[in-house]
Amino acid sequence: MKHTEAWKRSSPDEIKIGLISISDRASKGIYTDEGVPALRGWLESALSTPYVFHERLIADEREVITETIVELTDDLGCDLVLTTGGTGPSRRDVTPEATMDAGTREMPGFGEQMRQISLRFVPTAILSRQTAVLREIEGHTALVINLPGQPKSIK
């Protein structure tokens, strides 16, 4: 695969991270998104290597979520994509399905571990449907992980 200018890195150690907040209301401007700022803040405090973020705020629409994951991994070369929102049991919550559509292999241990940890603090965590996948294209593999929609749960 021929990589575009968007794939260039400022250093060999730089990690490209896609941050996607999935919210119908925030994407329409009904309220301010807190998901991407929470993800960014946590990562900035945790990372010691060079990084660059590519951020998106989108509606909870299966095709849009899948297309956004593909854009971040295939077009921009993100190594890691974190989503927040859309993992609950309601019919509008389609992030896990959209993530599976974008993935080439499921990584079920991530969702299992996140639910296990969350259950220590919130009894309804068992209702969360986070998942993780690898998206593999020629010459590149990215990890995509769904995180909860509540900013306090992201940590």
Rank of each mutant, 00 (worst) to 15 (best):
D60E: 07
G85E: 01
A102L: 02
R62K: 12
M100E: 14
A98N: 07
T49W: 11
E63C: 11
A102H: 01
L76C: 06
V70H: 11
T87I: 07
D93S: 11
S48E: 13
H54F: 11
S90F: 13
V64H: 07
L76Y: 08
V36P: 00
E71C: 09
T99G: 02
G103D: 07
R40V: 01
I69D: 02
P89V: 11
G88Y: 07
L80A: 00
A38Q: 07
R62C: 14
L43G: 00
I58V: 12
R92F: 13
E55M: 06
S48C: 12
C78F: 01
E67T: 12
C78L: 01
G77W: 03
D101I: 06
S90G: 14
E67W: 12
Y51V: 12
E97K: 07
D79P: 00
A98T: 05
T66V: 10
D101V: 04
G88T: 06
G77I: 08
G77K: 04
W42S: 05
L80F: 02
R62G: 15
D60G: 04
Y51F: 09
V64I: 15
T83K: 03
I58G: 08
T83F: 03
E97Q: 10
I69M: 06
V52Q: 15
S90L: 10
T68H: 11
A38T: 05
G86C: 10
E67V: 08
S90T: 11
L43P: 01
T95S: 15
H54E: 13
G85R: 03
A46V: 00
T104L: 08
I65W: 03
G41E: 09
D60V: 04
D93E: 11
L76V: 07
G77D: 07
P50N: 09
S90W: 14
I69E: 06
E97T: 05
V81W: 00
D93T: 12
E67H: 13
E63M: 15
P89R: 10
E71R: 09
E67Q: 13
T95Q: 10
S45Q: 04
V36N: 03
V94Q: 10
P89T: 10
V94W: 08
A59F: 14
E61G: 11
